[in-house]
Design a protein around this nucleic acid. Structure first.
Length: 280
DNA sequence: AGTTGTGTTGAAGA
DNA sequence: ATCTTCAACACAAC
C-alpha cells in the first residue's frame, strides 16, 4: 500500500531519472480503463487538455503525487491501494508491474505508466490554483516529516479527541501520509495499544508516538518503502522496509521484543496488528 | 467453487 | 462528535 514513504520514494526516483522526466512533454496517452481519470470526467477531454503540456516539478502532499505542468496546470495522482508509477526500463518480470491501465507517452521517447491491480487509483488534471484551494487539499493535515510538524502542533491536533489512537494516526485530515502499515509499526515501537483513546494517553506515551512517527517514516523512506504487497518504485523494484516490519501482517508470529504472539483485531474495516504484552 | 480478506478514500447513515 | 457500513475493484487464500 503506498503510504508516505512509498510516495516519497516514487517522487525521489522520478526526479533522479535519466533521461530526465523533468521538462518532458506529453505527446500521447493510452488507457484500457478510462475510469482511472476522474477529472475532467471525459477521458478525451483529459487527453486533449494535457497534450503538449510539460512537466515542470514533481512533489508530494500526503499520499498525493503532483506533477506541476506548464500553463499553470497540475496532474494529481493518488495510488490508493495497489497503484504505482513506472518509468523507463522497469522490471517486467515482476507480475506486480503488469497491471498497466494508463500510459503517458513523453516527448523524450519515454513512457510514464500506471500499474494498478485493483483500479482504485485516481488521476486528475487541475488548474494549479484550483487544486491548491480545493477542499480535499485544504483539509489535509500537516506532513509528519515537515520541520514545522512540532510536538506542540501534534499535541494540539490530538488534544481531547475521543477516538482510538490508531484511527487518528490514519486520519489524513489530522496527519497526512500514514496508513495501516505504518500506524501499526509506529504504535508497536511506541508500545501503545492501537485501541487506546487519545484523550487518555499520558504525556510520555504521546511523546513516544510522536518520536516514532518521525523515526519510522524516515527509516522507511531510507529503505525505499515497503513492498510486502504490490508497491514497486518507478524502476519496478521492491523497497526494503520488510526487514523492519515487526507486526503488520504478522499475526501469530512472535513479538520480536517479548516473544508473545502478535494479535490482530478488527478496527472499523481494517486490521490492527499489535503485541498484547508490550503494547498497553 | 463460492466466500472472505485485502485497505484508501469519500459518502451515507446511525 | 464519533461510529459503522458501503462502494469503487481484482485476486489470493481458504
Amino acid at each position: 500500500m503506498p503510504e508516505l514513504p512509498e510516495v516519497e520514494t516514487t517522487i525521489r526516483i522520478l526526479k533522479q531519472t535519466q533521461p530526465q522526466i523533468l521538462k518532458a512533454g506529453f505527446v500521447d496517452i493510452w488507457t484500457d480503463f478510462p475510469g482511472t481519470v476522474k477529472k475532467p470526467v471525459k477521458f478525451n477531454r483529459f487527453k486533449k487538455e494535457i497534450l503538449a503540456k510539460k512537466i515542470k516539478r514533481i512533489w508530494r502532499r500526503g499520499k498525493n503525487i503532483i506533477f506541476e505542468l506548464s500553463d499553470d496546470y497540475s496532474l494529481l495522482i493518488h495510488q490508493k491501494l495497489t497503484g504505482h508509477l513506472l518509468y523507463g526500463e522497469w522490471d517486467k518480470k515482476d507480475r506486480a508491474n503488469s497491471y498497466i491501465h494508463l500510459k503517458f507517452f513523453l516527448d523524450n521517447n519515454e513512457i510514464l505508466a500506471l500499474s494498478d491491480l485493483r483500479k482504485f487509483a485516481k488521476v486528475e488534471l487541475w488548474k494549479t490554483e484550483e487544486l491548491l484551494n480545493s477542499k480535499e487539499f485544504q483539509e489535509l493535515g500537516p506532513d509528519p516529516l515537515d520541520k514545522k510538524f512540532t510536538f506542540k502542533k501534534y499535541k494540539n491536533l490530538l488534544i481531547n479527541k475521543k477516538i482510538k489512537i490508531k484511527q487518528i494516526l490514519m486520519d489524513q485530515k489530522v496527519i497526512a501520509g500514514i496508513g495501516n502499515i505504518y500506524s501499526d509499526e509506529i504504535l508497536w515501537r511506541a508500545r501503545v495499544h492501537p485501541f487506546r483513546q487519545v484523550n487518555k494517553l499520558t504525556e510520555k506515551e504521546l511523546k513516544d508516538i510522536y518520536k516514532n512517527i518521525k523515526s519510522v517514516l524516515v527509516k522507511a523512506v531510507k529503505l525505499g518503502g515497503e513492498s510486502f504487497s504490490d508497491y514497486r518504485n518507478p524502476a519496478g523494484k521492491k523497497g526494503f522496509f520488510d526487514e523492519e516490519r515487526k507486526v503488520y501482517r504478522r499475526e501469530g508470529e512472535k513479538c520480536p521484543n517479548c516473544g508473545v504472539k502478535i494479535k490482530r483485531l478488527k478496527m472499523g474495516g481494517r486490521s490492527a496488528h499489535f503485541c498484547p504484552f508490550c503494547q498497553k
